[in-house]
Design a protein around this nucleic acid. Structure first.
Lengths: 131, 131
DNA sequence: TTAGATGCAAACATTTTGCCGCGAT
DNA sequence: ATCGCGGCAAAATGTTTGCATCTAA
């Protein structure tokens, strides 16, 4: 049941953390390929899943888009542009989803809440201008 | 540029609204098939996309899961069980993501925010018990 | 009448899996 | 020396598209 530290796993984590954006597996692959051309996409799929399960990275689900990954696990949120599909960070000071809310939900519904994330939707600055 | 009201579109909307859960296209198909066996999945895919674009239904993006649809467009949130993948409603009184927050984000980032949705993650009551 | 919608099947894209060999522990 | 992991290719899954036909307007 032990988990091994491999070169590939470390590169995947490092490269993901170097992104300011929220790359897909394809985007990660393209970047990792530059330093480790022999990597396989299957390895990236397997590792991002494992890292997300351990909570070392976040997996983002975006409507009409592939899975995206976020190397920043600090509590924060996302804005998704309905027009271009871009995903941008929205930091937490904007919204109040605190542990108090988690308890409230747990008491009301019986769900044991661990974490939360808010998605905001609309038009990003670029798309709002060109319309 | 006109959009037509077809029998299929109406059935899709009706059946979706009859769910308390958040069905995938496959689950919708299975249910619609009972009353309209000649329906095609392509028709369902095309219509849920159109309905979601018009805002008549919601498209939910769930990590490691297919797209799910929600016939209830009232402002509310979701709890996703990390263990069984179930998606449950969490109504809005639990969390404060109001128009004020939207303005705050718009001022800070320039995004024109239209709507938001919060996802809570953890263990649902059933899964929390059996662990 | 005509342009949007349907059903079907084929095409596509993304993600998962089986297999075998490699390498971290 | 194990057994988890990597690379590859094949398979599985989910979604979109081309096309001929149908139908709402």
């Amino acid at each position: 049941l032990s988990e091994r530290n491999t070169v590939q796993k470390q590169i995947i984590l490092d490269v993901l953390k170097s992104f300011n954006t929220h790359p897909s597996v394809d985007e990660l692959y393209a970047e990792i390929f530059k330093v480790h051309p022999s990597i396989s996409k299957a390895t990236i799929y397997r590792n991002v899943k494992q890292l997300a399960d351990k909570g070392e990275i976040l997996q983002l689900a975006v409507p009409n888009d592939v899975s995206r990954y976020d190397g920043c696990t600090d509590f924060h949120h996302h804005f998704v542009c309905d027009s271009c599909g871009g995903v941008f960070d929205v930091h937490a000071d904007c919204i109040d989803a605190t542990k108090e809310v988690f308890s409230l939900i747990q008491n009301k519904h019986g769900f044991k809440v661990d974490r939360s994330m808010t998605s905001f939707f609309g038009a990003c600055s670029t798309c709002a201008e060109s319309s």
